[in-house]
Design a protein around this nucleic acid. Structure first.
Lengths: 363, 363
DNA sequence: TCAAGTGGTTCAAACGTTTTAATCGCGGCA
DNA sequence: TGCCGCGATTAAAACGTTTGAACCACTTGA
């Protein structure tokens, strides 16, 4: 057809094809206020031609001129962690009504990706940035660049309010306490604990909450039954870690009737490990997880866990971002919110066995 | 500082700050061939100032001028389906080396999103489009628009080669046959089957493969043990469907020793349902899934399933796209590939029980 | 008759880059 | 002396839009 060098149909093409000027066509197709002055016949004609040629406005040219990208960068540390998905969906639905679009980037737990995607988001002139950071996220100096360019940031999973960055957190302490309390209320006293890896921000506060609750209930943890996951590479390593630790704790001595796992994948790993050792869940040993991700919900028995309102958190993050964009240069308030966790009781927990957990069969 | 109306630092700002012209600065910062002619001292000075001001080139202006966006649109039908994630990761790693960036959109199984995101991808001048379509994907006329604008498309999960669109498929027939054969080899004869919902493209060929294998092995399915999942809303509905059907099949008569489920989530649902009825997996009933998604791998027992090389498929899709972009207007070959499925045997299958499955306890 | 609308349409400048062609001072060469 | 080449830098046009201001041919009110 009448295509030019570039493969795309432009305003020019449409203008030429219907005999009007570029301006008129633009006014009509972008439904500018002025389009009321354009004769109705002209309007329909232009629209018709545009449709026929398959015209779509060039977002680059448009954003350049309008100086708005209607884009919010979303940087997730790893999409293959089921934890991220509901958050992203929440963000998406929060952005929707303002007709903003997420520019979604998956860092795949690699620092270099993290940096380059942050740069990319900046170059694409996202009007705001939302970072989902459960780890990897060390204070890049790119953050400084983002601030220099006056792009508002919201961070999920980490408190950076002291750096004037709105932060959205899970109340890990309360969550940890909640999980432990549940076990205690069921009657468990000898409880094995698996702490998260050092690199994760969630590990420490969760452990703090657990100890707080333990102290409050007059419970002591046997150090021989307190473990720590090694550094994480990918989300499934939590599973393998839990599985391995299950054997360790069965082999290495002291009796216990329940396991408090760092997160759901770890809990699932423990469940597998226990099962391989011939134990039944929850009759021989109760297991609690954390996060309430999909695999925990659809396992059998379902994993009792601490639910986090991930979707709402995503939504809120989106709203904060939009608000900050709106405020523009103005007084962008720095928010902080701790989402309240909720215990979800499923089949993996029950009253303690009379005889404490011990290996029943060999694999 | 010396900021203008727009919050962003521009080439102009840098030029003014260091006393050189915009051209020189551009040449240096974009490392154009000409930059060899620029005095070394000038170069370092410019770089230094740019760094200090936090300059990042405007992707909009740049792409507009260069007429390249270095972007490939990726439209997933639903990111919350764990099925999508490995594909997306594959795509990402396939795009990486060519320094293309995925523009990732999640249609969330909503038709309207699908359309508007496809439009958006077009407007953002993605140089190629990859569609992950297990359903919802009816022939939008937007597809025609994409073609009019000469943007190459690759589609995953559907054969559209007759419309000259490169298509990447799972060999559902072989996969279905594989799953059934496994059960037969274990000695199962009375097998319940759960077919996929009509709306999904995978349902029919998978069922065809199953019947082919059945005929070949001289097996007949009892129509009272052949079910179909109702239309799907979200990925978890497969779970609920399976759970409900487990009860149905136990209640409604004929004996069976194994269940062939449409996909992993359904299989997990069946497992839950069976367990609630007091049956043990695999002793009392074997279960096979399809897809090999994360929840199936980390459940206990692990779900025996048909693995699909999702990541490689994503990679391949990315490579095809890049190739088509490269060819540009030229002879873009239309590819078709059927990925070969592979059986993954886990704990959910075993030899048939002496006594066929039947309800043991009430919930 | 003239000024002031009015409805319909267009000019032209801008947005922030990239890139081709030009500019400029200067030493060397014939 | 005039010309060339050279190294360093810059002017200006283009990419596809949007938009305030202008334009034009009318009509209308005074």
């Amino acid at each position: 057809m009448g295509q030019r060098k570039s493969g795309h149909v432009t305003l020019h093409d449409v203008a030429r094809a219907c005999g009007y000027s570029v301006s008129t066509v633009s006014i009509v197709l972008s439904e500018a206020p002025l389009s009321q002055n354009v004769a109705a016949s002209t309007r329909t004609q232009i629209r018709e031609v545009a449709q026929r040629l398959g015209y779509h406005p060039d977002a680059y040219a448009r954003s350049l001129r309008r100086r708005r990208s209607l884009t919010v960068g979303v940087l997730a540390y790893d999409l293959s962690d089921p934890f991220c998905i509901p958050i992203v969906q929440g963000i998406q639905s929060g952005l929707q009504p303002a007709s903003y679009v997420p520019l979604l980037m998956d860092a795949q737990t690699q620092r270099k990706h993290f940096d380059s995607y942050l740069k990319l988001i900046l170059e694409r002139r996202a009007e705001g940035v939302i970072v989902i950071a459960s780890w990897v996220f060390e204070e890049t100096n790119l953050l400084a660049d983002i601030e220099k360019n006056h792009v508002p940031i919201v961070i999920l999973g980490r408190d950076l309010t002291r750096r004037k960055i709105s932060s959205l957190l899970i109340d890990n302490e309360t969550g940890g306490a909640l999980a432990l309390r549940h076990l205690i209320e069921l009657g468990h006293r000898n409880i094995a604990v698996i702490r998260g890896p050092e690199e994760m921000f969630d590990s420490e506060p969760r452990w703090t909450g657990i100890r707080r609750q333990a102290a409050q209930s007059g419970i002591k943890f046997d150090p021989r039954l307190t473990f720590q996951l090694p550094g994480v590479l990918d989300p499934t390593s939590g599973f393998e870690g839990g599985r391995a630790l299950a054997r360790t704790m069965l082999d290495a001595g002291p009796p216990f009737t329940a396991v408090l796992a760092f997160d759901d994948l770890t809990a699932l790993g423990v469940m597998r490990g226990m099962s391989e050792a011939g134990l039944r869940i929850p009759q021989d040993c109760s297991i609690v997880g954390f996060d309430d991700v999909l695999p925990a919900a659809v396992a059998t028995p379902g994993i009792t866990t601490v639910h986090q309102p991930l979707q709402q958190m995503g939504l809120l993050a989106a709203q904060w971002t939009l608000e900050a964009i709106e405020a523009h240069e103005g007084t962008a308030t720095v928010h902080r919110h701790r989402a309240v966790p909720e215990l979800v009781v499923r089949g993996s927990t029950g009253p303690p066995a009379k005889a404490p957990a011990q290996r029943k069969a060999r694999t």
